[in-house]
């Protein structure tokens, strides 16, 4: 039920029509795929995460397709963010968090004894739910990552190319010295994407990157994601079904079982998850009967 307080979203108004568009669009997209796919960048094997005694996700095994957008969907509290943050060892920062199973990055176990979590986060970038630019200038926001990683060379050029790839350059090129906090929400989020790109990761994790943005800024971010997947592997957590359907090639549906531990119900090409899911739980969720 929709409450009067919620502004009507354009997605909701055009829902049935939109659904058909998606079907056509995603089908044509899967048709273009090359016959041989590159090896998955990220592979998870029996991953479980705990916060203290609480098991947040249970026995998840999945491969993430390279140079594609994978959407993680599921009800609130099912462990989507936990799963995402397990990939760049962000959960290490939470006291009491631990993980069992394996998270492989190009075949290397990210939780291996000799792996440096700081280096992991450089290779696997992250964009957060709320735009969180540093309280610094636009330029310094982008240059921060390369600087702390000891990158030498033409910083101006790196800042420009990162902002260009994040589709923000034209809007900010005359005010690089201004604070990143002074930008609009959508611009801030693209600045955060530019900041993530600047350290040249090959995987970008996005944790509900559009939940704080208006529909227009949301679309801009989605278009940007589709451009970026040429060079990056993107994993996005989203609560927005339309967004998952519009932007992603692969969809992973998680839900939670007894004891509130999240588990993976189904993973597949987005078109299949949305039109012909194998599992009844997925069907109920994507059609809006649950969650």
């Amino acid at each position: 039920m929709m409450t009067t307080a919620t502004p009507p979203s354009p997605a909701a108004e055009t829902s049935p029509k939109r659904h058909m568009d998606i079907r056509i669009e995603t089908r044509s997209r899967t048709g273009d795929e090359p016959a041989t796919r590159p090896a998955p960048v990220i592979q998870m094997e029996d991953v479980s995460c705990w916060y203290g005694d609480f098991r947040a996700i249970r026995d998840i095994s999945l491969d993430i397709r390279t140079n594609a957008i994978t959407a993680l969907i599921g009800p609130s509290g099912c462990g989507k963010s936990t799963l995402l943050r397990a990939i760049n060892r962000m959960n290490d920062l939470v006291p009491g968090a631990r993980l069992t199973g394996k998270v492989l990055y190009h075949g290397e176990d990210l939780y291996g004894p000799r792996v440096d979590a700081v280096e992991v986060r450089r290779r696997i970038g992250m964009v957060f739910q709320k735009p969180n630019p540093f309280p610094k200038s636009i330029y310094d926001n982008v240059a921060f990552g390369p600087r702390v990683n000891g990158v030498r060379g033409d910083m101006d050029e790196l800042v420009e190319s990162s902002l260009r790839r994040a589709a923000l350059w034209d809007e900010v090129k005359d005010k690089l010295k201004q604070s990143g906090m002074a930008l609009s929400g959508g611009q801030q989020q693209r600045l955060c994407i530019a900041r993530a790109i600047a350290v040249e990761p090959d995987v970008i994790l996005m944790d509900e990157p559009c939940s704080a943005l208006d529909p227009r800024a949301t679309l801009q971010i989605e278009e940007l994601m589709i451009e970026l997947k040429e060079n990056y592997t993107i994993i996005i957590v989203t609560h927005n079904m339309q967004q998952a359907a519009r932007a992603s090639e692969e969809t992973v549906f998680l839900t939670m079982g007894e004891e509130r531990a999240g588990f993976m119900v189904e993973k597949g090409p987005t078109s299949e998850i949305f039109t012909n899911p194998k599992n009844q739980l997925t069907e109920d969720y994507v059609s809006g009967r649950f969650g």
Partner: peptide
Amino acid sequence: PNAIREAGYGVGASKWQVTRKLVLP
């Protein structure tokens, strides 16, 4: 805000770098 620390860690900064360059300022 913790978001600033997370953002720093997210681009591969070490604890010292996050503390020195983001938290302290």
